[in-house]
Each structure stands twice: as C-alpha cells, then as structure tokens.
C-alpha cells in the first residue's frame, strides 16, 4: 500500500452486504412516492432575488429621454471596462450621452454602475433570459437599454443586509 494512505478502522465483523442492500432498496423505494422537486422550467419559473443583478436597463424621464447626464462615472468605475460613453452637450449646456453602449458579454454584473450613478439612470435588472443570434447582439446601445422593461435590481442596503 502506498505511504500515508489513511486506513479507516472498519468494524468488519458488523459489516453486512445483503441486509445493507435491502435497507438501501427500502430507502430508494420510499423515494419513488415522495414529492418531486422538478420545476417545469419554461412554464414554471423559480422566483429570483430582489437583489438579482442581470442585464442592464436605462431609466427614462417623463419626457421619454434617458436620465443619463453623461457624467462618466460608470465607465470609470466599471471593473471590466464594458461601458462605452461619448458625452454630448445641447444648446442649454445639458450633457447627454451621444453614444452609450454596454457590452453584456464583458460585463461581470457587479452592479457598480448602478451604485455609482448620481441620477439613478443606469440599473442592473432582475432578468436572466438572454439569447441572441450573434455576438454583436449583446452590445446593448442606448435605445435598447431604454427599451428594456424588466424590474431593476434593489442593490444591497447596509441597513437591511438580508433584503427583507
């Protein structure tokens, strides 16, 4: 035997095979009639946490414009560098994003963008069913982000750490 193999001290005299097998069979048989735990996925869905961080959503003002003021905090804080922001300015001197793109493939869904946003414009969403026919489909532009309707994540609240 190899060196340093841990040898269990088994009570060989008490070991049985047949009786142990029958006991095991009784156990599996009782499981035949137990309640099944399967979730029939496309029809039934498991509820997800209120703090779930999924694909993003840009909130809009009453006039239907993006809340974003192109301050540049989210691309700065983003650890995976997946947000592309080109700021613009209108005649009144209000900043707005000319280009706002999030590459959902690069995103690690840390939620820092939502936390850092002063205008509560960009959010991570409570949403997990994403599929596209191409890789490019996962680069969400501003229009796409604004068009999303899923509920947004409630980020971690220090006063209510369990989210109750």
């Amino acid at each position: 035997m190899a060196i340093n193999v841990k040898v269990l001290d088994r009570p060989v005299e008490q070991v049985s095979y047949m009786r142990a097998t029958l006991k095991g069979m009784a156990m599996t048989f009782s499981h035949l009639f137990k309640e099944k735990v399967t979730t029939q996925y496309p029809e039934q869905k498991e509820s997800i946490s209120r703090r779930w961080r999924g694909t993003h959503r840009m909130l809009t003002t009453e006039t239907g414009k993006a809340k974003c003021v192109a301050c540049g905090l989210c691309p700065t804080v983003c650890p995976s560098n997946c947000i592309k922001l080109v700021p613009g300015e209108d005649e009144q001197g209000n900043r707005y994003p000319l280009v706002f793109e999030i590459d959902e493939f690069r995103c690690i869904f840390c939620g820092y963008c939502q936390e850092v946003c002063p205008e509560e414009a960009i959010h991570v969403g409570r949403h997990y069913e994403n599929s596209e026919y191409s890789r490019e489909g996962f680069v969400y532009d501003l229009e796409r982000l604004m068009a999303q309707t899923h509920p947004v994540s409630e980020m971690w609240d220090p006063s209510d750490p369990k989210g109750e």
Binding site: L8, D9, R10, V12, E13, V15, Y17, R19
Partner: peptide, 17 residues
C-alpha cells in the same frame, strides 16, 4: 447465509485494519 455468513465475509470491504 444472510445473518451468520454475511458479516464482512461475503465481499471484502475496503481495507480493514
């Protein structure tokens, strides 16, 4: 067979001490 012989003898278990 099942109560007297079947005491760790039917099949050798993993190494006993």
């Amino acid at each position: 067979t099942f109560f007297l012989l079947d005491r760790g003898r039917v099949i050798s278990p993993a190494y006993g001490r």
